[in-house]
């Protein structure tokens, strides 16, 4: 049993071996880390802010530090999870930056509000060693809503 456990712990390959019946697996494969969606969310928010900054250069000074904060959150979350940060460009934000600057800011505020909720829930559910990071991310997202007013 120890041997099988050690082999399975080798990681990524374990999933593809599961179907071939070589090993009797009595442990379910570990699921994705609960923080993995937060990495994607952070990268999406950063991409949305960069797109808006590109479309509205007058807002770039306000939007760029916030985009950088999301990028830093993604990097820190990936470090905590123990996965490399996806190096491919983040998925394009679902909506292209609005043509009107006020509408663009309103859409960004709404995205930050929703993201703040995600981080708040993740912080409440987190083990001790992750609570402070998630708390900072929730607080950062709340301040982004304010800074985008």
């Amino acid at each position: 049993m120890l041997r099988a456990g050690a082999l399975l712990a080798l990681g990524g390959a374990a999933g593809s071996l599961a179907g071939c019946g070589l090993f009797d697996r009595d442990d379910p494969a570990p699921g994705p880390d609960p923080l993995a969606p937060l990495v994607d969310e952070s990268l999406r928010l950063a991409a949305g802010l960069r797109a808006a900054a590109g479309a509205h250069p007058a807002l770039a000074d306000r939007l760029t530090p916030i985009a950088e904060a999301h990028q830093a959150h993604a990097a820190e979350l990936a470090r905590v999870i123990g996965t490399p940060l996806p190096s491919a460009p983040a998925p394009t934000p679902s909506d292209p930056a609005a043509a009107d600057p006020d509408a663009a800011l309103a859409a960004l505020r709404e995205a930050e509000r929703a993201a703040r909720e995600t981080a708040t829930k993740a912080c409440a559910a987190a083990p001790a060693e992750r609570a402070a990071l998630l708390g900072s991310i929730a607080a950062a997202r709340a301040t982004h809503v304010e800074a985008l007013k």
């Binding site: 000074d61 306000r62 530090p65 916030i66 950088e68 904060a69 830093a72 959150h73 820190e76 402070a132 990071l133 708390g135 900072s136 991310i137 607080a139 950062a140 301040t143 982004h144 304010e146 800074a147």
Partner: peptide
């Protein structure tokens, strides 16, 4: 004071 925010509040 700008920027208005810090990346990791409280850290």
């Amino acid at each position: 004071i700008t920027p208005l925010t810090v990346p990791f509040p409280g850290r």
